[in-house]
Simulated scan of single mutants.
Amino acid sequence: MEHWTEYTRFITSLVVIMDPFMAIPIFLTMTKGYTPRDRARVVRIAVFTVAATLIVSALSGEGLLAFMGTSLGSFRVGGGIVLFIMALAMLQARVDPVRTTPHEEEIASGLTSIAVVPLAIPLLAGPGAMSTVVIGMQRSTAPYHEIMIVLSILLVAVVLWLVLSLAVPIGKRLGDIGLNILNRIFGLILAAIAVEVISNGIKQLFPILVS
Rank of each mutant, 00 (worst) to 15 (best):
P36I: 04
T35H: 03
T112D: 01
V150G: 03
V134C: 05
A157M: 00
L54R: 15
V158K: 13
V197H: 08
S71D: 01
R94C: 03
M18H: 15
Q138V: 14
I185P: 06
I181F: 11
H103Y: 13
L188C: 10
L182S: 13
T29E: 02
I17W: 00
I177M: 06
N183K: 09
S57C: 08
V43C: 04
F21S: 10
V16D: 08
A167E: 01
G178I: 03
F84S: 12
G110I: 02
R44K: 09
T112L: 00
I170F: 08
M148I: 13
M90S: 14
N180T: 11
G73T: 05
T70N: 00
G69F: 05
G136F: 00
G128Y: 11
A87Q: 12
I11F: 14
A40C: 09
G178T: 00
S60D: 08
E104S: 03
F67I: 12
F21Q: 10
E62A: 12
R44P: 10
G69L: 00
L83V: 14
F67P: 00
L162C: 12
S109W: 09
I26L: 11
G136Q: 07
V163C: 04
L164V: 13
T49E: 01
L160S: 14
I11N: 14
Y7W: 02
S140D: 01
P127M: 01
L160F: 05
I170S: 05
V56K: 04
L162Y: 15
P36T: 01
G126N: 07
S71P: 06
I198A: 08
H3G: 15
L54D: 10
D96S: 08
D38N: 00
I26H: 03
Y7L: 14
V163K: 14
I55W: 07
G187P: 06
V197S: 07
P127F: 05
V15N: 13
E146C: 07
G201H: 03
S13T: 13
F206W: 01
F10I: 05
L188I: 09
L83A: 05
Y144P: 07
R9N: 04
Y7E: 00
T141V: 12
T31E: 02
R139T: 15
T31C: 02
W4V: 12
I193V: 15
R184V: 03
R99G: 07
V47C: 10
L154E: 13
L188D: 15
R76D: 12
G78C: 10
P36D: 08
S71C: 11
W4C: 06
A52K: 12
V163A: 08
K172E: 09
L91M: 15
V197R: 07
I85R: 06
T112G: 02
A87L: 03
E62V: 04
M18L: 04
Q204T: 15
V56A: 09
I81F: 11
F67K: 04
G171F: 12
T29M: 12
I135G: 08
M18S: 15
V116D: 01
A108I: 00
D176C: 01
T35I: 10
A93N: 05
L59W: 07
R76K: 03
P169G: 05
L209Q: 06
L151D: 00
A129Q: 12
R139A: 09
V117K: 05
L190K: 10
S113C: 09
I114H: 01
T112I: 07
I121R: 02
P143H: 08
T35V: 00
L14N: 03
